[in-house]
Amino acid sequence: MGIEERRARNQEARRRLITETARAIAEREGWGAVTTRRLSAEIEYSQPVIYKHFSSLDDITDAVALEGFAELAEALREARLAAGAPGSVAASDAVHAVAIRYATFATDSPALYEAMFTRASRLPFGEGAHPEPSAAFAELRASIAPRAGDDDLELLTEALWAALHGLITLNTNARLRPEHQSARIDLIVNRIVPYAS
């Protein structure tokens, strides 16, 4: 391994440690607790070292969000493929499996979900965006495609994504009865993406 390759690996390892630590603090105490001083104390890097890798806390949050989008895309892909596997419980309904996995992802990692969807971000979405958010959207779209019929697939995907996000946001803020989460997901999926006739 050459010097440049070793240096690049070390820099990537430091960046990863910074984002992992920020994410862990945020999950325990909320994003307000994530400061460069706190990160510096937790990982024993000076603040200038942190700023060498990230120009601001917003850059750190955006990096965490990108990691989250990659994880979400993988989780949705696994749910979609498992639902379509022969003999699986939900073999005929990948949309439902993906919607449940989406909600579980958000519930299991609320600070990560917040970084991805509700905190201010400078990440571009849509055309020319980072591939991570697009990959997660593509997995949701792929689960809907067999049920879309002649309907606009992009519009259905956007509507389902928005409905799931609203449901999760309301549920996270304790505005809905938690025992009805599964029934709400069923209702959203079946109303927005009914089986094509």
Rank of each mutant, 00 (worst) to 15 (best):
Y195E: 08
L72P: 01
G2L: 05
T36V: 11
Y195Q: 14
V189I: 09
I100H: 13
A94N: 05
A70K: 12
A103G: 09
A13S: 14
A129G: 15
T21H: 04
T36F: 00
L123Y: 06
R184C: 00
M1L: 07
S88Q: 00
R15N: 13
T107D: 05
N171R: 14
A120G: 14
Y45C: 11
E29C: 08
R147Q: 07
L187K: 13
L170D: 12
A90C: 01
R119G: 01
T157R: 11
I25S: 03
A24P: 01
E78N: 09
V95R: 06
M116L: 04
P133G: 14
V34R: 01
G149T: 09
A174C: 10
H165W: 03
E44R: 15
A85P: 02
R175H: 05
A145C: 08
T21Y: 04
A103N: 01
E42L: 10
A148R: 14
M116C: 13
Y45Q: 06
A163N: 09
A24N: 10
V193M: 03
L187V: 06
A159G: 15
L167A: 10
I50T: 11
R77V: 02
E154V: 12
G30D: 05
R122K: 15
D59S: 15
S182L: 06
I100V: 14
P124D: 08
L160Q: 12
E44M: 09
K52I: 03
A196E: 05
N190Y: 06
I185L: 09
